[in-house]
Design a protein around this nucleic acid. Structure first.
Length: 260
DNA sequence: CCCTATGTTCCCAA
DNA sequence: CTTGGGAACATAGG
């Protein structure tokens, strides 16, 4: 469920709460996650985002990698609160505890001993490589939306923001990506940055159950132009928003101002 | 019972 | 070999 803005929101909040704090204990409640050894007594020295994943660096150079997938959430409990249903692991500190709650149990947690072997992530906010993307895309026939969702090319865009970005730049989601001009790629770059940064400012999009570290809803759902607006009038033209399936994902667009 | 769901990975057919 | 589509993963809600 969380895309880049939601994960970025969590990372910023985690930095405030657990940076340089010692881990007292780790309790894995879902055996599906597997064992995570060697965390007790360590301090978390940095929290960074790699695409949609949270990376927590430890003071022994190991890294804890968390991917929330579809329904994963993190919750900070400062004082005692009950453990909510679907809690998958708990990391305890002296000043509170961090819970991972994940209804569908797709989230993954892993520890990497080496601090150096970071996967190379194409970060759209800091390093949007427009000309490189244009060159890669120029020879691919798949729909532009599928290309935007491929984390190998741009890391962090998911279904909601892909729909929003393509609407903003008036490109039809089914357009073969080889047909996107360099000029249009520059528009995609601009729209991606504007939309993702605004969504971060709003602490993400809550359309169903997304909550930030402190249990609050995001606010970007009030800014959405197409996602979830099937049948409603387009906010830019006189069309009405349609929802069709593209590679199994609900795809919202305006057939009137997003022509192929 | 049906369908839907903010993600990723694997399998298989073209 | 590459490409792309669909299923699978697991669960809740409409």
């Amino acid at each position: 469920m969380p895309e880049l803005p939601e994960v970025e929101t969590l990372c910023r909040q985690l930095r405030r709460v657990i940076a340089n704090r010692e881990i007292l204990s780790v309790e894995i409640l879902d055996p599906r996650l597997g064992a995570v050894e060697g965390l007790t007594g360590r301090k978390i020295t940095a929290v960074t985002r790699q695409g949609k994943a949270v990376e927590m660096k430890l003071d022994n150079d190991a890294r804890l990698l968390l991917h929330l997938r579809m329904t994963g959430k993190m919750q900070w409990q400062r004082a005692y609160q009950a453990v909510p249903p679907h809690t998958r692991f708990i990391i305890a500190f002296s000043h509170g505890r961090l819970l991972c709650i994940d209804t569908r149990r797709f989230a993954t947690l892993a520890i990497k001993a080496d601090g150096s072997s970071q996967a190379f992530v194409k970060e759209p906010l800091l390093d949007f490589r427009t000309e490189e993307l244009y060159k890669i895309a120029r020879v691919k026939k798949l729909p532009v939306k599928s290309f935007l969702l491929d984390q190998r090319w741009i890391a962090g865009i998911g279904n909601i923001y892909a729909c929003e970005i393509l609407h903003e730049v008036s490109i039809n989601p089914w357009r073969p990506v080889c047909g996107v001009s360099l000029r249009e790629w520059r528009k995609i770059e601009r729209a991606t940055k504007v939309i993702l940064e605004k969504a971060i400012t709003c602490r993400g999009t809550t359309v169903s159950d997304w909550r930030d570290l402190f249990g609050r809803k995001g606010q970007y759902q009030h800014e959405l132009k197409v996602y979830g607006r099937e049948g409603l009038p387009c906010l830019r033209c006189r069309g009405h928003i349609q929802r069709l399936r593209l590679s199994g994902r609900g795809t919202y667009f305006c057939p009137s101002c997003q022509k192929k």
